[in-house]
Computed example of a mutant assay.
Amino acid sequence: MSETLRLGVAVLGNVASVSLYAAPITTFKRVIRKKSTEEFSCIPYIIGLFNCLLFTWYGLPVVSYKWENLPLVTVNGVGIVLELSYVLIYFCYASAKGKAKVTMVATPVLLLFCITAIVSAFAFHDNAHRKQLVGSIGLVVSIAMYGSPLVVMKKVIQTKSVEFMPLPLSLCTFLATTLWLTYGALIRDIFVAGPSVVGIPLGILQLVLHCKYRKKSVLEEPNKGDMEKGNLEKVELEKVNMEMEDAEKNVSIHKNSNL
């Protein structure tokens, strides 16, 4: 029963996490269409790539005991493909300054991952110590990744609009972190469950902001439409009045000329 529960939670966690990783696809469709990265930052995607690399390595038999953490390998393997695609697309359409920034951030990150992988594989000779090293670094990186929406939440509060924080993404964040916390608790792995301690409150906060500002956005849109409609009616009325005044002037001039 416990094995079936673990598997079920792992599958659901995979689905929710893949949805999270796939969410920026619409953003990068826009980048490709406009052939510009605009004001988007590359850093969240590089951090996401680093996180996926670390936890894929963590789940492999080199670090973990046999295939005890196979669900981590599957979901983060998909994450590597997606996040790497985002970084490469960003690099292709970025300005010269943007390309330099990608290189400056991505190079140390990839170097740190390589060092972590080499040290964990050759400096330690048991799975417990390897998991401690890779898991500790992965824990810090995951917390940074889950903390990145704070910038968006600040913008939501300032603008009082959830335009830049889609509801499906917030729901996936909450579901993914809840499921991985459950899975980590079931397998008693602090490095799997740990990031969700930060991720769950942030997911809840995003949903609270949606409840608070979505209604305001819905209410403001009709008002805005009414204002625009009122402005159009006002312009039309002024136009009619001007035409009537011109007509009266023409009649008056015509009468005077006849006199």
Rank of each mutant, 00 (worst) to 15 (best):
A185Q: 11
L82N: 03
G8C: 02
A100P: 02
L82R: 00
L12A: 15
N14I: 15
L171Q: 15
T37C: 09
V140L: 11
Y58A: 03
L49D: 08
G48I: 08
V11I: 15
L53I: 00
R30I: 07
L5F: 05
N51S: 12
M242T: 11
I115Q: 10
G8W: 10
L259Q: 07
T56L: 02
S85P: 00
L60F: 15
G138W: 11
V162H: 12
V251C: 07
P166V: 08
P108K: 12
V141W: 11
V105T: 14
R30H: 05
D189T: 09
F113K: 06
Y45G: 03
V151P: 02
A10V: 00
K216T: 15
A10W: 04
M104P: 00
S170M: 10
T116P: 01
A10K: 00
E39G: 03
R188V: 15
V134R: 12
E3R: 04
N14E: 14
K224T: 11
M145C: 00
A96Y: 15
L219K: 01
G13E: 04
P61G: 10
K224E: 15
M227S: 07
S64E: 10
F28L: 09
M104K: 04
S41A: 11
L5W: 04
G98Y: 07
T27M: 01
P222Y: 06
L72R: 00
P61E: 13
T178G: 13
G138P: 02
L53D: 01
V208F: 06
L110Y: 14
F91L: 01
V197F: 08
F174R: 01
E228M: 08
N250C: 03
I89T: 08
I89A: 10
P168A: 12
F122P: 04
V162C: 10
P166L: 13
L237H: 05
A123I: 06
V141I: 13
V105P: 07
A121F: 04
V140K: 06
A10S: 03
L205G: 06
G13D: 05
K229P: 00
L150Y: 04
A176H: 14
V156I: 13
H210T: 09
C92L: 01
T103F: 06
K215N: 05
G199S: 08
C42H: 14
L169S: 10
